[in-house]
Design a protein around this nucleic acid. Structure first.
Lengths: 218, 218
DNA sequence: ATTAAATTTTAGACAAAGCTAAAAATTTGT
DNA sequence: ACAAATTTTTAGCTTTGTCTAAAATTTAAT
């Protein structure tokens, strides 16, 4: 399996999102920053290898083998992201490019060792789930913080209101993208929230919560 | 800098060992398990890029830039080896192949972070010195354990007598390749040694010491 | 439903890195 | 010193992955 083949497999996997969705040549070319003609060539090759299902002009989808390969790559990518953030103090937004390289390293022992060393994490720093060795993983969805039930745990992945005052407020409260948030309790009176973030509990208004996106795995 | 170029640079560096020694085409081909004709091609390319000095039929040597590149690769390789052994419990002899892949990952922040995370190690699990970020490092030499002065610290890298009884003895004493050994004291009477290994002090005869190779950085 | 627009595939080239076989240069043996 | 042996380079071909331009197919629009 070459570098390039692996990149195509990942692209097809991410574009196919939900299931065995069939993906268009142009979509792949766009995502990979290459030309449709190159995609045609590679897709034919992957098809001959039994990694994708392909009918000319009709789009492409991953076979069982293809999905397994894709999940192994995603697993590696996300484990490395956890490593970079947890152990080497990379920040949320610096990890992707490096993980993109690291995911191509071939060594089963390395991946297993890393997984164990990191304590078998279930999500990466962006809140996306990490497939198990067998390829199992939970789906994750994005919701506004004020819409989730008590007890929900997730990663803060975005803001709805991106005005400077709001961002400044978040900064003051020490809430940053990538932080894990646990919803402890809700006030009935004003729908304000008690949450746990960075190890300590804080109290935020419903209005704040209504502008924070949480990625949760269910 | 492509993967392949980096591999050639490392090969030339290791063959040139001591200094700006000029290296032969055949030697490179042998070490890299490729053909001399391929080496000729690549060497011409590296020469055009200012990474090696090259005169047809006269051999090749690294330029200043070339040496800097080589040292950066060696640094990465050895840091990863330390990571694999110290953090992921790889054994002495499993690390090379994986480090060979990891050394090609491009990210200054990653290398610096790894170095710091590992506590700025000075030698890899084989006892070979790790170049600093600036490319400085101590030479290392191999000596028999009974020939080094008190206070010497090194890594056990080999045996002179490889007979089963001796190896069995080492096993019983829990002395393995890759262990760091510190010479604590020498008995004048029988030249036996007190050494520290795996955190605890033990006592070994001169005869044993005379059959253990230590790699020390001076 | 037939043409126009968009998408996809093919054909032909190119660069990187390798190989084989043959030519050129260097080294060695006598 | 000169022929033989060795080493190194060149020439030409292959594979992988890419590109451009042109052809084929599908989709959309009137």
């Amino acid at each position: 399996m070459t570098l390039s083949e692996e990149d195509y497999i990942k692209a097809i996997y991410h574009l196919g999102k939900n299931e065995n969705t069939t993906v268009s040549t142009n979509a792949i070319a766009d995502r990979m920053d290459t030309k449709p003609s190159s995609v045609s060539d590679m897709v034919r090759k992957l098809s001959e290898k039994g990694i994708v299902n392909y009918r000319k002009y009709k789009g492409v989808s991953l076979t069982g083998t293809g999905i397994k390969t894709a999940l192994a790559l995603v697993r590696k990518h996300r484990l490395w992201e956890v490593f970079l953030v947890d152990k080497l103090n990379f920040s949320w937004d610096e990890v992707h490019e490096v993980a993109e390289q690291l995911e191509h390293i071939k060594s089963e022992k390395l991946v297993d060792g890393l997984d164990k060393y990191l304590g078998h994490p279930e999500v990466d720093p962006h809140g996306d789930p990490i497939p198990s060795k067998k390829g199992e993983f939970k789906k994750s969805i994005k919701k506004l913080l004020n819409e989730v039930p008590i007890g929900t745990k997730g990663v803060c992945v975005g803001v709805k209101d991106s005005s400077p005052p709001f961002l400044k407020f978040l900064d003051k409260k020490q809430i940053s993208l990538g932080d894990t948030i646990l919803v402890l309790d809700k006030e009935e009176f004003d729908a304000s929230l008690h949450i746990k973030i960075k190890g300590k509990g804080i109290h935020i208004s419903n209005q704040i919560a209504a502008n924070l996106y949480l990625k949760i795995t269910e």
